[in-house]
Amino acid sequence: MACRNAELVSLKICQAPMNYTRLRPYLLPVLSFAAVVAVWGIARRLSGWSPTVFPGPLDAAVGMWELIRDGSLLKHSVASLFRVTAGYYLAVAIGTPLGIVLGWWKTGQLLTNGLIQFLRPISPLAWIPLAMLWFGIGDKPAIFLIFLSSFFPLLVSTIYSVNHIRTVYFQVAANFNFTPFETITRVIFPAILPDILPALRISLGIAWLVVVAAEMIAVKSGLGYLILDSRNALRMDYVMDAMIAIGVIGICLDRVIVQLNRIKSVAWGRT
């Protein structure tokens, strides 16, 4: 029986349920994954299609093992990770400072806002022909596309958060004779951090969306290429394995960013 009474738990009357409470955050997600795999297996069986068209969980697992054993999964994952990391860091390194400057400098904001809103809805995928023409074949066009995809969401949300910093903080900064540099590093940057973290999280997700598309076109490595190559070889189990790998890496990267929320000087943003 589940023990919901917190007092009883603290009195250690309900030992076993306390264990459950501790494991709950890990058990429940596993449960949902297990359910999806079960539905997948049943759907495969009921469909009556051949495993070549609709591989089941077991086929995918066997394929996964082959990909792990011959090292190609690792190789492709590293290639994709490299591109995402490079493009994403580039977007963070340029988008955040630019957002801070534009958020602070009203003339610049008026000057560029129209341009930003014009460029923002153009899908990074629309840039593929130009990117290939300009940067050739290889990592560069992929990194460029990933950069584009995460740059605009980061820029727009940074500008927005800077615009919404409480004016009192700037007055306090003026009151204690802060230099402009100090105002940026000790007021603006810490003030927007809690708002920026969700944007970092979302744009990292977008970067992953784009890397697959980019790799289907311009390169001969990466998880996107693995999907395309497996499709050409009619290995749907490999296609699914690449999808699973993307999902797993996505979870891991998301966890890393969520950890940033635990920094003490960011915690105020949640209250």
């Binding site: 009192v168 903080y169 204690f176 004779n177 810490p190 000087s265 943003g269």
Partner: peptide, 27 residues
Amino acid sequence: GPSSEHIFVFQHSGLFPWMTVWENVRL
């Protein structure tokens, strides 16, 4: 203009929430 010779204590807290009490007072 504003200066540290005349300090303003604001109606709603003017403490920087990302700094500890110590860091705030040290300003």
